[in-house]
Amino acid sequence: MNIFRLAGDMTHLASVLVLLLKIHTIKSCAGVSLKTQELYALVFATRYLDIVTDFISVYNTVMKLIFLGSSFSIVWYIRHHRVVRRSYDKDQDTFRHYLLMIPCMLLALFVHEKFTFKEVMWTFSLYLEAVAILPQLVLLQRTRNIDNLTGQYVFLLGAYRGLYIFNWIYRYFTEPHFVHWITWIAGVVQTLLYADFFYYYFESWKNNVRLQLPA
């Protein structure tokens, strides 16, 4: 494993911890999109089908369990926790999941490496992950005051995607036959979606003002 990959995974882990910290200790999910969290739960559930069939490493299995467990528990918290659910911005979080899920499923059925159940589900998870942040970005744009933890959560998620691109560049030059178009294109699209957010995140950080996205 190269340094970019490890840094990417650690950033991803940090993003989940920041979100759990906000939900668990502050007992608030204000500004957090349930739609995005449900999409991530679906992304991990469809991508990690191999957790029971293939063993890669202890690291791999543990991380998969962490991402599965955290994404489902975040969804549970927002939907069912007595206190947390009251802070959910239901009226603002109106993005419709199926507008993302259906096109991703159709694309996965037609554009994949192998036509097997596991492979199509895995490809679906890549496409869906690429766009799963959209409901969260829309919600951020509607939220006038973005709190620090929510801003950091989205920043860490974007950083994780960016680091994965460096990881692929590194692997392309160091490993023979490392060419994975579907993974790469979906990953680059996903990272580009954060470009606008990053711009305003750094501007607010530079000027030391509260993060706010233009409507």
Binding site: D9, D50, D54, I56, M63, K64, H177, F178, H180
Partner: peptide, 10 residues
């Protein structure tokens, strides 16, 4: 392409 290569990523 080889399955085991990308499937080791998360």
């Amino acid at each position: 392409s080889n399955d085991t290569i990308t499937k080791d990523e998360l």
